[in-house]
Design a binder for these strands. Sequence first.
DNA 1: GCGCTAGATTAAATTTATTCTAATCTATTG
DNA 2: CAATAGATTAGAATAAATTTAATCTAGCGC
Lengths: 133, 133
Amino acid sequence: MSALKRLRAAGLRPTRQRLSLARLLLEGGDRHITAEQLHGEALGAGIRVSLATIYNTLHQFTEVGLLREAVVEPGRSYFDTNTADHHHFFCEATGELQDIPGHHLVVSGLPAPPLGTEIRRVDIIIRVHPGSV
Amino acid sequence: MSALKRLRAAGLRPTRQRLSLARLLLEGGDRHITAEQLHGEALGAGIRVSLATIYNTLHQFTEVGLLREAVVEPGRSYFDTNTADHHHFFCEATGELQDIPGHHLVVSGLPAPPLGTEIRRVDIIIRVHPGSV
DNA sequence: GCGCTAGATTAAATTTATTCTAATCTATTG
DNA sequence: CAATAGATTAGAATAAATTTAATCTAGCGC
């Protein structure tokens, strides 16, 4: 689906900057990107957009399911263009994030959530570091 | 083991503030605490200690395995006094973290880590929100 | 097409979490 | 008990993210 249609379907007004950012984000392959990185890319691509808008846009896209947020380190948020069910390898040395397709991992023995709450998502982060090889 | 012995065993000089903080942290039950919260508690308990030392101490304790760090939200770090194998429920509405004993959850189908890396830990965060009840 | 308006964008200031710095203090060693 | 390596400190600095108040613009009715 085109970026324009996806924005409309999500109820987001297709403004110049949202359209441009949607194209940057959604038309490449699966990526993990920070707000600062996206801002840099946008400027590099000639899109004039403020950092505040980057943050607004990333959060709005996340709310409507166009992106997913991955929290792995204090003080940095990654936004994941892969919204399918999946999990992550995270290398603490390089800060790199790598997808693990959802069907590979199976969690069993999931206990009932605390009273009065329901499960929204299960995030699995496999933390790795450079090995002894 | 006493706080003093645990510090010595970890190779950390048992200074007044480290000892006091170790007692606060390790002698209660399992807890999830932020740097700011611990600072508040320390001051409340009459321990004169700066925020910088709180951060230093939390990180040192984490390095030597006296604590574990749980990253669930950008811009906030929780330190977990439970260092046993376990996972977490995280309620996004309240910011509350709750332990899930490790033996409850079983992950299968774990793929091989990226070439040249080895697994250090598997973190599972079950994100919940207040239910419809 | 034209203007109106709700919603979007902006630069700049602010907040919040954390780290750094350089000076002072203290636990350990001899 | 003096020397010193390491710890602590207040305060400044940094960084990510959010807020603010002013300006802009997409989409609507005409």
